[in-house]
Design a protein around this nucleic acid. Structure first.
Lengths: 155, 155
DNA sequence: GTACGACTTAAAGTTGGCTTTAAGGCAAGC
DNA sequence: GCTTGCCTTAAAGCCAACTTTAAGTCGTAC
């Protein structure tokens, strides 16, 4: 089997070469061998990258993916690694889903119940009913459930 | 009613002064009057800010909030503005919720079905079953449903 | 007059996951 | 030996929503 260039690998997995270089840079991929300066890969790298992509589809960050690859004793089977990481991620996604539900509830409530004419009238009502409540931190799926505070549900 | 300084306003609504300056800078708040260079506010600004915060809790971006404030004919009542913007946002949240469900499905599937020992063995299985599938774009609640492609559900 | 505290501005930094840019290297074909 | 095309690197840029920093202004208290 001939060795692959970076763009051949990239094409196979649907990534840009720059992404693969980036993964090497941040330690998700080991340093590739070089042929007169250029990276050469055998085809096991595409399996690695398929794993990376699947893990991303599951909501894992690159940091978590690095832990999947390198954060366990060498003998730990991958199936066990998945189970360990999935547990936390499922909990995070549950939290995220609840936050989305809270937003949906707020949106439906304001559509149904608000009859305000003026902005400040509406704002006064909100301020009175929920003065000083937490702001919604921008939710990111890759860093979820950290600085989130719950919206309170009055209107 | 005396005028408020920026930090008094900030304290009332639970924001940092820098956030309020930022809102002025990006046009969410009108330019405040100054007293020897310093911003002075009347208390209607806290209603404005309550509105901003509530809208953020609902998942609106600052850009969308600016549209809520300035993107309609002046006579359009706020209740109608909410309805207009809520429609799109609810649809986005629905999409987002589905993406989360897809992730949960993938996570549960790998926890239940994967018995792989080695990383590459696992990656080969994923690659074979779903070669070239789309990568999950990082999901942000504030700009959802844009470049997302669906994860395919094999394994 | 000077120290203090609260304010001002513009500009840079933060986060993650990359992409883009700039400047250059190396091999093959003509 | 020159062009073409693909590769290399380090550094900067992108996105949103701010925060932080640096350098300076202002009024009040001592």
């Amino acid at each position: 089997m001939p060795l692959l260039t970076i763009s051949e690998v990239a094409k196979q997995v649907g990534l840009k070469p720059s992404a693969i270089r980036y993964y090497e840079q941040v330690g998700i991929l080991p340093r590739a061998q070089r042929a007169s300066g250029q990276r050469r890969y055998d085809n096991t790298v595409v399996y690695r990258l398929a794993l990376v992509q699947r893990a991303q589809q599951m909501g894992f960050t690159l940091e978590e993916i690095r832990r999947l690859f390198f954060g366990f004793r060498k003998a730990t089977p991958i199936s066990e690694r998945w189970k360990k990481l999935s547990e936390r991620k499922l909990a995070e996604l549950e939290t995220l889903a609840e936050q989305i539900k809270a937003m949906q509830t707020l949106l439906r409530a304001i559509s149904e119940k608000c009859n305000c004419e003026a902005l400040d009238q509406c704002g006064r009502g909100i301020f009175r009913s929920s003065c000083g409540d937490a702001k919604a931190a921008p939710l990111r799926l890759d860093q979820p459930a950290r600085k989130l505070k719950q919206p309170n549900s009055t209107l």
